[in-house]
Amino acid sequence: MREFNAVVLGAGGVGKSALTVRFMRGEFVENYDPTIQEEYRRSIEVDGELTWLEVLDTAGAEQFTALNELYITSGRGFILVFSLTLEASLREVTSLRQQILRIKGESSGIPMVLVGTKLDLTNEREVSSATLRELATRWKIPVYETSAKRDWDVREAFEDLVRQMREYYPVEPPKKKKKRGLRGKSPCIMM
């Protein structure tokens, strides 16, 4: 079974933990309790293939900038989270994406999804679907509008990231063991 790790990044209070816990445990966390760092691990079946997925739920990006570099360096896939009810949180995700590209040293293709949370709070929405479509096209990454409370499109976002990681990090063939022989040398026999 293949194994991947994903890092959940975004501003504080946008619903990173609610999204992560909904996916990893199937529960909705009602109360906001600022996270410093939480790790979750579970198997997930995507397209008939089982995968171990480790998800690192991080603190708000503005709170622990130095740690973000460490998370990004070790991460293989990224879930960039913002709140559909807070336009400023989308700007934070823009900054995080630039940081990922700088640290990873690549212009595109890094497994990444953009996730807007709190879709169920329609009266408080500040970020339009049109803005997200334009951003998805420009960044060439998928965008999901989710609700952890209602469990809308949460699993789909994580499954998409797993598919991207499978493609971006292909299976490496097993390494051949070197034969330890004497290669033309006479054996030494001790008595």
Rank of each mutant, 00 (worst) to 15 (best):
A148W: 05
A148K: 07
A148H: 09
A148C: 09
A148Q: 07
K149C: 05
K149F: 00
K149E: 06
R150S: 10
R150M: 13
R150I: 10
R150K: 15
D151P: 08
D151Q: 12
D151I: 01
W152E: 12
W152Q: 10
W152C: 06
W152S: 12
W152V: 14
D153W: 11
D153R: 15
D153S: 13
V154D: 04
V154N: 06
V154W: 03
R155I: 06
R155M: 05
R155K: 14
R155E: 15
E156A: 15
E156S: 14
E156G: 11
A157F: 02
A157I: 02
A157H: 05
E159K: 06
E159F: 04
D160W: 00
D160Q: 14
D160T: 14
L161F: 04
V162Q: 03
V162W: 02
V162G: 04
V162F: 00
V162T: 04
V162E: 02
V162L: 01
R163S: 10
R163N: 05
Q164D: 09
Q164T: 07
Q164E: 10
M165K: 01
R166G: 13
E167R: 10
E167A: 10
E167S: 11
E167G: 14
Y168H: 14
Y168S: 08
Y168L: 01
Y168C: 05
Y168N: 05
Y169W: 07
P170C: 09
P170I: 09
E172P: 03
E172Y: 00
E172S: 12
E172R: 10
E172C: 02
P173I: 04
P173Y: 00
P173D: 11
P173L: 08
P174N: 07
P174T: 07
P174M: 08
P174V: 12
P174K: 08
K175G: 04
K175V: 15
K175C: 09
K176R: 13
K176P: 03
K176F: 01
K177T: 13
K177F: 08
K178N: 11
K178V: 15
K178R: 15
K178C: 12
K179D: 10
K179Y: 06
R180T: 08
R180A: 05
R180K: 14
R180N: 10
R180M: 01
R180C: 08
G181V: 08
G181L: 07
G181M: 05
L182Q: 09
R183P: 01
R183Q: 12
R183G: 06
